[in-house]
Computed example of a mutant assay.
Amino acid sequence: MLDFYPVAIEKLIEEFAKLPGIGHKTAQRLTLYVLNLPKEEVDEFSKALVKARGTIKYCSICGNFTDTDPCAICSNPSRDKKIICVVEEPKDIMAIEKVREYNGVYHVLHGVISPMSGKGPDSIKLKELVSRMKDEIKEVIVATNPNVDGEATAMYISKLLKPLSIKVTRIAHGIPMGGDLEYADEITLSKALEGRKEI
C-alpha cells in the first residue's frame, strides 16, 4: 500500500474495511466522508456506536438483540407465543418483521450446523430451543437460509422436535437456494411464510 495517507487515516480505512461487504475503496470513501463531517456529527456517530455496543445485549428468551430483557417481541402480549420461528441470526428477525405477516415469537440459533466449519449442534442455541418446548408450543417454523448448512440445520431441528409431538414446518422456498433472508424482498418473504410446509 502506498504511504500517502497519515497513519490515523490508514487505521480508519483498515477499520472500515473490516465491516462485511466493505472493500478497500468503499472504506476509503467512508473514511474521507467522516473526516469531512463537522466535529459534532462525528462525536454523535462515535457516541451512538459506543452506546449501542455497550447497551445492546441478547434477549434471554429468544436471543434477539435488545436493550431490555426480555426483548420487545417476547414481552409483547399480542404475539402468539405458541408459534416459534427459528432463524440463524438477529438480522433475519428484522427481515421477517418488515413483512408484517408473522405474529409469533422467535428463536435465534446464532449460527447453523456446519461440519465443514467445525460447527456441530452444540455450537448453536439448540438446547435453548428444546427447553422452550415445555410451554404449549403448537408449531416451530424453521427459517434457516436455503443453503446446505441451513437445510442440514432444519432437518436436525425437525428430527430433534418430532418426538415431542410438535409440528415443525419449513418456510417455502420463495427464497432462492444459496440466498440469505436479509436480502430477500418483503413479497418473497411473505410468500415463503405463507407456503411453509411440514418437515
Results as ranks from 00 to 15, higher is better:
residue 24 H to Y: 14
residue 24 H to M: 12
residue 25 K to N: 13
residue 28 Q to P: 03
residue 28 Q to Y: 13
residue 28 Q to S: 12
residue 29 R to M: 00
residue 29 R to F: 00
residue 32 L to H: 14
residue 34 V to A: 09
residue 34 V to W: 00
residue 35 L to Y: 07
residue 36 N to G: 11
residue 36 N to C: 05
residue 38 P to K: 11
residue 38 P to C: 04
residue 39 K to R: 12
residue 40 E to S: 09
residue 41 E to G: 00
residue 42 V to D: 00
residue 45 F to H: 01
residue 46 S to W: 05
residue 46 S to Y: 08
residue 47 K to E: 12
residue 48 A to E: 08
residue 50 V to N: 04
residue 50 V to Q: 05
residue 51 K to H: 07
residue 52 A to C: 06
residue 53 R to A: 09
residue 53 R to M: 09
residue 53 R to N: 08
residue 54 G to W: 00
residue 54 G to C: 02
residue 54 G to I: 00
residue 56 I to G: 01
residue 58 Y to H: 10
residue 59 C to R: 05
residue 59 C to M: 10
residue 61 I to N: 03
residue 64 N to F: 02
residue 66 T to D: 07
residue 66 T to F: 08
residue 70 P to C: 14
residue 71 C to A: 14
residue 72 A to N: 15
residue 72 A to H: 15
residue 73 I to H: 13
residue 74 C to G: 15
residue 76 N to G: 14
residue 76 N to P: 08
residue 77 P to I: 10
residue 80 D to Y: 03
residue 80 D to I: 04
residue 80 D to N: 11
residue 81 K to D: 11
residue 81 K to T: 05
residue 82 K to R: 13
residue 83 I to F: 01
residue 85 C to Q: 10
residue 85 C to E: 10
residue 86 V to R: 01
residue 87 V to H: 10
residue 87 V to K: 08
residue 87 V to D: 07
residue 88 E to C: 07
residue 89 E to I: 12
residue 91 K to S: 07
residue 93 I to Y: 04
residue 94 M to F: 14
residue 95 A to W: 03
residue 96 I to E: 02
residue 96 I to Q: 05
residue 98 K to S: 12
residue 98 K to E: 13
residue 99 V to T: 15
residue 99 V to C: 10
residue 101 E to N: 14
residue 101 E to P: 04
residue 103 N to I: 00
residue 105 V to H: 04
